[in-house]
Design a protein around this nucleic acid. Structure first.
Length: 428
RNA sequence: GGAGGGCUAGCCUAACUGGUAAGGCAGCAGACUUGAAAUCUGCCGUCCUUAACGGGACAUGGGGGUUCGAGUCCCUCGCCCUCCGCCA
């Protein structure tokens, strides 16, 4: 959520941000509403001040056993006016809050202006695509052939956009998660978290999924609970409505969770393989920082995610998202895209964002600065990484002509020292 | 699911039969000091208004009600604790 003060003192900043994002939101009606609200508020507060005075006089007179009927009547009349104007004020405030929750964050000055993903800027590239002397297969073909990914049975037991990992496939998935968590916690200084997979509406609103993305969330029947679309939601909300100590910052968390998304609006898109599923695994990195250091923390966050890809020996590029492609809550975002040899393209495997105080304002995440003033924190997060894009990359880039798959060296300790998945689907 | 107890500022704790939230700790600034400690003074929840000084409203878990006036009385929801029931 944006600062109301910024909205009314520098509306042109917000207006420009909406233009840069190609947002259809009209600011003028909102500004007008905000001004009307403040006028009404001043009125109501004056009436309340009056009533408080009269009411206090009643108390004093009664203590002296004097007659206070006139004051009581005056106070009663004031009360009626306050009630009536106050109701109008409440309605305005509710409406205003509802629209404020739908205004996206302001892109950082360093974000390139652009309409969509075509205008994202490649910042750097690491490694190179593997040279395969045969025609490489996509991971879903490899997975079925080796019997380590089972799409058919997943459809039977759950439906479309689900998969069963089996045998070496399941083990490799677990190895990836272990490798990433170990690296993040032992080298990156992140504290490991296992959060609830269901959260309430307040948490969803805190990180910005609600109200805009409500249709992409799975809701638990008859409960005010939703399946998390990313660990970002429960982990960032750990500190909702808290005031943190300056010395505690930055807070760094790493959490592995399954993630659940309806993928509404993407029917018929990416239906092959495991790149777009209703349920997928992801290790998420979350940082809560003070405002002065958040952009330095963003760079190191990207670095932490890149390190994982480098150790896995996967070719990738770093994209700086343009204003039009930025997600709702983000002020600046880098995507890490990893090469998939089987389909001859890059796939996003991580998204690292600085939300500045946008989520912190919604979620009430604050800290006491050096002068002991209470201020909003900055929040950041980045995938480190999503296995639904990482496992296919490994399968496709490390595949051999006979359909076997080499295991990257850093993962070998996590699969009992094995070096490859043989053409029969078992570790060798 | 049932019964009882509880929720006051970053933390801890008050407030007679309803009369308009009192303190303490921690923290920050200043004074004193060679420095520190101790001591003293001020600040120390949110919002509105004001150039500023200041003024005002709101705030006792959330929401609603009764009342001139609610921490206090009533309703409702949430969370915590104890006991009972169920249970991996």
């Amino acid at each position: 959520m944006l600062d109301r003060k910024l909205l009314r003192e520098n509306p042109e900043v917000v207006r420009q941000a909406l233009l840069d994002r190609h947002s259809a939101i009209q600011l003028d009606p909102i500004l007008e509403k905000e001004n009307r609200k403040r006028e009404l508020m001043t009125q109501v507060e004056k009436l309340k001040a009056e009533r408080n005075q009269v009411s206090e006089a009643v108390g004093k007179k009664k203590a002296k056993r004097e007659d206070a009927a006139a004051e009581i009547e005056a106070s009663r009349v004031l009360g009626e006016k306050i009630k009536s104007l106050g109701d109008d004020l409440d309605v305005l405030e509710i409406e205003l809050n509802a629209v404020m929750l739908r205004i996206p964050n302001i892109p950082h000055a360093s974000v390139p202006r652009g309409a969509g993903s075509e205008e994202n800027v490649e910042v750097r590239r690491w490694g190179s695509a593997p040279i395969l002397e045969f025609s490489p297969k996509p991971h879903w073909e490899l997975g079925e052939q080796l019997g380590i990914l089972d799409f058919e049975r997943a459809t039977k037991i759950s439906g479309a956009r689900f998969v069963v990992y089996r045998g070496a496939g399941a083990r490799l998935e677990r190895a990836l998660i272990q490798f990433m968590l170990d690296t993040d916690t032992q080298e990156g200084g992140y504290t490991e978290i296992i959060p609830p997979l269901m959260v309430n509406q307040a948490s969803m609103q805190g990180t910005g999924q609600f109200p805009n993305l409500v249709n992409d969330m799975f809701r638990v029947q008859d409960e005010d609970l939703y399946l998390i679309p990313t660990a970002e939601v429960p982990v960032t909300n750990l500190h909702r409505d808290e005031i943190l100590k300056y010395s505690e910052l930055p807070i760094k968390y790493a959490a592995y969770t399954p993630c659940f998304r309806k993928e509404a609006g993407s029917y018929g898109k990416d239906t092959k393989g495991i790149v777009r599923q209703h349920q997928f695994n992801k290790v998420e990195l979350v940082k809560i920082t003070n405002p002065e250091t958040s952009y330095a923390e963003l760079e190191s966050l990207v670095g932490d995610a890149e390190k994982l890809l480098q150790r896995l020996g996967l070719h990738y590029r770093v994209m700086l998202l343009c204003s039009g492609d930025l997600s709702f809550s983000a002020a600046k975002c880098y995507d890490l895209e990893v090469w998939h040899a089987g389909v001859n393209r890059f796939w996003e495997v991580s998204s690292c964002s600085n939300f500045e105080d946008f989520q912190a304002r919604r979620a009430g995440i604050r800290f006491k600065d050096k002068e002991n003033k209470t201020r909003l924190c900055h929040t950041l997060n980045g995938s480190g990484l999503a296995t639904s894009r990482l496992l296919p990359a490994i399968m496709e880039n490390y595949q051999q002509p006979d359909g076997s798959i080499l295991i990257p060296e850093v993962l070998q300790p996590y699969v009992g020292g094995k070096k490859k998945i043989g053409k029969d689907g078992n570790f060798e």
